[in-house]
Design a binder for these strands. Structure first.
Ligand SMILES: NC(=O)c1ccc[n+]([C@@H]2O[C@H](COP(=O)([O-])OP(=O)(O)OC[C@H]3O[C@@H](n4cnc5c(N)ncnc54)[C@H](O)[C@@H]3O)[C@@H](O)[C@H]2O)c1
Ligand SMILES: NC(=O)c1ccc[n+]([C@@H]2O[C@H](COP(=O)([O-])OP(=O)(O)OC[C@H]3O[C@@H](n4cnc5c(N)ncnc54)[C@H](O)[C@@H]3O)[C@@H](O)[C@H]2O)c1
Lengths: 235, 235
DNA sequence: ACGCTCTTGTGAACGTTTGCACAAAGTCGG
DNA sequence: CCGACTTTGTGCAAACGTTCACAAGAGCGT
């Protein structure tokens, strides 16, 4: 991404333009940890404490937060409540994001039942399926609608985020249809590489890939043969 | 990406050492695409074709594969079957990986029912839960065992991979116990940062984080794209 | 055998991310 | 108001990752 543009920013206004992708991916973790501190009525945290709770290096955390602006107080730390607000705002969580889930199988049902889903501004607008046996059943307080109603649901609720939890074989078709109806952010659980036009954002969650990565490291460990716990390289 | 607590620089003479983490994360994708080619009885693929199917740049793909060795033929491409074998071997998929799933709730059941699970060398050794109501029920051909039997199950099946699908509150305790029984690879679905000793590899899958990243980009798009509406971005 | 075509494998340039180290900026007790 | 102390914010260098671009190698037709 091109940062480095003339920083003719009208002062501290770090626009949401130049935040590194790696930082974005960590902000939700910080946010979660911040909520935990807030629940314990802790008013301020240092970068060291926050970083420890989030499992990252404190310099990295400070640099990450510095991209949002200068919200800390030297000698003191960060105000938890204020930082929660700033991070939320940066991530776009101060608004409501209606989500449509396509595929009400094992995974789709688990997702719909997932409490943490609705907790942070994400609201299930509808759960869709194509199976007549499934359509009409009740899941987590939502009646499963026919996938044929996708266009209406997306339009009526102004859905911009779609979750694909259908079998791999139909995922691309579902994706195309979501895109055609105006959905521009897609979270894909099916084990396929989705093809989308530019301007559409796809993220994938893939259990199988994660397991394979774990297997690689597990194998390496066993092959390399650690005689005793000599290699203390831990991050 | 989650932490990798194993050797930051484990190259000490062994040939195929030092494969970049980013490459490892892509190998499973290549493998999946390769299987798709194999099923169509396509004997060879060029890096260009493979890369397109995997959704990456072809130079990147070639460099990734070059880390495993020189398995292509100039002017021709890669032999699909041979490459499947080489990638599988590199990932450690030529052996069987018994997996224990802890937590037989909505998500745990979906995972246990997931077909693609067993398909690539991963075998569910047991599904564990602590709820007496759940223990004893049948899920995907597995009787749910009491979590108290973790030690026996792990020992008997030589489990080295554990999947945590319990509520966030108990995830750390479950993790500690898994580690104590000798599990060194953990896939965590609970929305918490797990603390593990070095030598243990943790990866996390976090729906909520993925949604928040999507929300960030969606917000950016909508802010950037609407010229007439309020530009309340830079305060 | 030769030249043509195709495609790999990789050196080098470029971009991104990380972590250190420290000045700057704040708090606090006296 | 000062000096001791704490902690942020960031310049910088190194590590890591991506992409370009092309020489070298392989197959094929003649
Ligand atoms: N279950 C898991 O833990 C898990 C893990 C990783 C990945 N996945 C992937 O997630 C996807 C769903 O898994 P699952 O276990 O829920 O499968 P499932 O078969 O239980 O459910 C799939 C559902 O999608 C519906 N469907 C099929 N085609 C459709 C279409 N065109 N439009 C709308 N709905 C349609 C089916 O009727 C069914 O209800 C699969 O691609 C699977 O590989 C699942
Ligand atoms: N369901 C989803 O789609 C989803 C998505 C993302 C993350 N998650 C996370 O995955 C986890 C599980 O979600 P879920 O929807 O399946 O929850 P759930 O409440 O349906 O299931 C949790 C299960 O864990 C069992 N359990 C609790 N403590 C245990 C212990 N100490 N040992 C063994 N088992 C124990 C419970 O008895 C229950 O059966 C949660 O942390 C959730 O935040 C779920």
């Amino acid at each position: 991404m091109s940062r480095r543009a003339v920083s003719a920013n009208g002062r501290s206004g770090h626009g949401s333009q130049g935040i590194p992708e790696a930082t974005i991916a960590r902000l939700p973790v910080y946010l979660r940890v911040l909520y935990a501190f807030a629940e314990q009525d802790i008013p301020t945290v240092s970068s060291e404490e926050l970083a420890a709770a989030a499992g990252v290096n404190s310099a990295k955390l400070r640099k990450d937060l510095s991209h949002l602006g200068s919200y800390g107080t030297r000698g003191v730390g960060y105000d938890v409540e204020y930082l929660v607000y700033q991070v939320s705002r940066e991530l776009g969580l101060t608004q409501d994001w209606p989500v449509v889930i396509v595929g009400a199988g094992n995974l789709g049902r688990a997702l719909a039942n997932y409490g943490g889903f609705a907790s942070r501004g994400f609201r299930i607008a509808a759960v869709l399926d194509s199976d007549p046996e499934v359509v009409g059943t009740q899941i987590a307080g939502h009646g499963v609608l026919d996938v044929e109603q996708m266009e209406q649901v997306v339009a009526r609720h102004r859905v911009s985020i779609g979750v694909i939890a259908t079998p791999a074989g139909t995922a691309q078709a579902v994706c195309d249809r979501l895109v055609a109806t105006g959905v521009t952010s897609i979270l894909n659980f099916a084990p396929v590489v989705l093809n989308v036009p530019s301007g559409v954002d796809v993220r994938k969650v893939d259990l199988s890939i994660e397991l394979q990565i774990l297997a690689f490291h597990a194998q390496r460990r066993s092959v390399v043969r650690v005689p005793q716990d000599a290699q203390a390289v831990g991050r």
